[in-house]
Simulated scan of single mutants.
Amino acid sequence: MSTQITVLALLTGLLTGALFRFLNVPIPAPPELPGIMGIVGIFIGYKLIDYADIGVDLLDALGL
């Protein structure tokens, strides 16, 4: 993972969040800590399954 991409993503998020607040538009993300932790949990779960190298190709299982 590139540190430069991570920093750019953080800066983009900060600018976007500031713009949403400046325009008094609700952010398209959970504004409370439990919601944010849910998103973090989804990411960690995804990474754990990726690390374990297990999974099912859903499209292949459906024949698509």
Results as ranks from 00 to 15, higher is better:
23 L>V: 09
2 S>T: 13
56 V>L: 15
33 L>G: 02
41 G>M: 02
22 F>M: 14
11 L>Y: 04
34 P>T: 05
25 V>F: 10
49 I>A: 13
46 Y>F: 13
3 T>V: 10
51 Y>T: 13
35 G>S: 05
13 G>L: 10
16 T>G: 09
40 V>S: 03
33 L>W: 09
6 T>Y: 11
59 L>Q: 12
28 P>K: 08
31 P>D: 10
32 E>N: 11
29 A>H: 07
35 G>P: 01
54 I>R: 12
9 A>W: 06
35 G>E: 03
30 P>L: 01
39 I>C: 01
51 Y>A: 14
63 G>D: 08
5 I>Q: 15
6 T>C: 11
62 L>G: 02
55 G>W: 03
21 R>A: 15
15 L>V: 12
60 D>W: 01
20 F>E: 03
9 A>H: 12
29 A>W: 12
31 P>A: 10
17 G>Q: 05
23 L>K: 14
5 I>H: 14
12 T>M: 10
9 A>F: 12
59 L>P: 00
25 V>S: 04
11 L>S: 09
51 Y>H: 13
6 T>V: 11
40 V>C: 07
34 P>V: 04
33 L>V: 12
42 I>L: 09
32 E>M: 07
29 A>N: 07
34 P>A: 03
20 F>D: 00
35 G>K: 05
25 V>C: 05
14 L>W: 06
49 I>P: 00
37 M>F: 05
14 L>T: 03
10 L>M: 14
8 L>Q: 11
32 E>V: 08
28 P>N: 08
2 S>I: 00
4 Q>W: 06
11 L>C: 11
58 L>S: 10
35 G>C: 04
37 M>Y: 03
1 M>Y: 04
48 L>I: 13
57 D>H: 08
53 D>F: 10
10 L>D: 09
27 I>N: 11
56 V>R: 14
14 L>Q: 05
57 D>I: 05
20 F>K: 02
42 I>M: 10
11 L>M: 12
22 F>K: 15
48 L>M: 13
39 I>H: 01
38 G>K: 05
20 F>N: 02
19 L>D: 02
3 T>I: 09
11 L>V: 13
32 E>S: 08
60 D>N: 12
44 I>F: 10
61 A>M: 07
14 L>C: 08
17 G>W: 01
8 L>A: 10
54 I>E: 06
36 I>D: 00
39 I>E: 00
50 D>F: 03
24 N>I: 01
48 L>F: 10
2 S>W: 02
27 I>K: 15
37 M>H: 01
20 F>M: 09
48 L>S: 08
20 F>P: 01
45 G>Q: 07
59 L>I: 03
3 T>R: 13
29 A>I: 11
27 I>E: 14
10 L>V: 15
23 L>E: 06
63 G>L: 09
51 Y>F: 14
